[in-house]
Simulated scan of single mutants.
Amino acid sequence: MALSTLHNVRFAGMASCVPRRILDNLLDCPPQLRSERERLVRNIGIRNRRICHEWQCFSDLAFDAANRLLEDLGWQRNEIDALIVISQSPDYPMPSTAIILQDRLGLPQTAIAFDVNLGCSGYPFGLHLLGSMISASGIKKGLILVGDKCASVQDPLFSDAGTATALEFDSQAEPMHFNLNSDGSGHRAIMLPVGGHREPFSAEHLIPTKDENGFKHWPNALHLDGPAVLSFSTQKVPPAVVQLIDYAGIKKSDIDYFIFHQANRMINETIRKKLDLSTEKTPTTLHDFGNTSGASLPITITAQLRESLMNSNSKLLLSGFGIGLSWGSCILNTDKSTVFSELVIS
């Protein structure tokens, strides 16, 4: 069932980490592409992006975010019962990145640790997954590490980030409500077609082609069907949000902030207008951080809402959507004791 409610789960805290290196979509491009990039920046709303150093992995960013969050929470590492990593940027094809981070973070061997292969929709799915484990079993405290290493110098859309979120058992916690959906018939809209068992990597995938601007494109690069993604996002997300609000038995005005995956300005503005939401209730980080995949919800909360949330009790609606195709939303509550760490620069 797409709609569900979790009880006895408290949203304890969040930390986000981005690389130090910044790419400017206007300045860090060939001069002959400047006018095209100016138009693109106006349309997609992304000026600056964060990109990892060559030696950095997503797991390095997630590691720094998790360390900061555990320190700010005051949690002991031997208290952590579960570690879930949600990313499409693993350190290795095997073993799972979560297993490696369990050791790096000094978590106990009794901690459950595993990976989930989800992208832009991953954050609400991760909250539901860990929340279900806490609500239904003896797990008391757990971490979700979400993000990706997906930035490149040529692509003006994507940015690198890693985040950490802490959930804990609390019999007095307000319920969390979820609406999670999947549509595999659209899996080709966002796809990395080469490198798996269906099409193994071979020497021919090393031969690029050049476009009219002289940029090289490799057969094993990410395939993104822009019109299909636009149609999917703007048609599926608004009704799913309305359905979740109705299911939770609240009104739209009861939500303090609506935080959407930071896809691009055109998609996000269409969703906002379809739901008749004010810009004050829909914070954005597209201009300064770009599309950070599954990390975009916590990045937006950390960068735009941290001070506000630390000083009030708030009801948030979070909505992620993208590769799969998949889309998921959740409604959760934060209070003045919820920890929102300062943005970590790595």
Rank of each mutant, 00 (worst) to 15 (best):
P93A: 06
V194S: 02
E79A: 13
A166V: 00
R306A: 11
M14W: 10
I80C: 09
E71F: 12
F232V: 05
V194N: 02
A248V: 03
H128W: 13
N179Q: 09
D170I: 00
H205P: 01
T292F: 00
I255W: 09
V41S: 06
E71Q: 13
T282V: 09
N220C: 14
L73W: 01
P30H: 03
S4A: 14
M94W: 12
L325T: 00
A164M: 01
F178Y: 10
R39L: 11
D155N: 11
K236A: 11
Q262E: 02
R272I: 07
S171N: 12
S296F: 01
R50M: 04
A166Y: 00
W327E: 02
L224Y: 10
M14V: 11
K273N: 07
L6R: 01
D225Q: 08
S35C: 11
F169A: 15
L317F: 00
I301H: 01
T279P: 13
G162R: 03
M266K: 13
L145G: 04
K274N: 15
G106V: 09
E204R: 12
P124R: 06
S253I: 12
V9T: 10
Q88R: 11
T234Q: 13
F258H: 09
D288W: 02
Y257F: 15
N8Y: 03
R188M: 10
E54T: 12
F289K: 02
N268I: 11
L3C: 01
Q56W: 04
F258W: 01
F114M: 05
K252S: 13
A295H: 03
D225A: 08
R50L: 05
R47H: 09
A111S: 11
T209L: 11
Q262L: 07
D183C: 05
G184M: 04
R188Q: 13
I139P: 04
G320E: 01
A62N: 11
F289Q: 04
S314W: 05
N8F: 07
K336N: 07
P156C: 03
P239L: 10
L26C: 06
M310Y: 05
H223M: 11
N43V: 11
P93F: 11
V237G: 02
S182C: 10
E38T: 04
F232H: 08
A66G: 08
G119A: 14
I86F: 01
N268G: 10
N179E: 09
R49W: 10
Y123T: 00
S233E: 08
F260L: 09
Q56G: 03
H223E: 14
L297A: 03
P298E: 04
F11Q: 08
N220V: 06
E342V: 02
D28I: 08
H7Y: 15
L143D: 05
G106A: 05
L73I: 01
S182G: 09
M133H: 13
E199D: 12
T334I: 07
L309F: 10
T292C: 07
T302C: 04
R47A: 06
S231M: 12
G328H: 00
Q262I: 06
Q154G: 14
R49N: 08
H177F: 15
T234C: 12
L157S: 14
L143P: 06
C120H: 00
I250A: 12
L277Q: 09
L69E: 04
L224V: 15
L107F: 11
D211N: 13
S314Q: 10
I134N: 06
I190E: 01
C120Y: 03
L130V: 09
I80W: 03
H261R: 02
V344Q: 12
L73D: 05
S137N: 11
F114C: 08
P227S: 07
G45V: 03
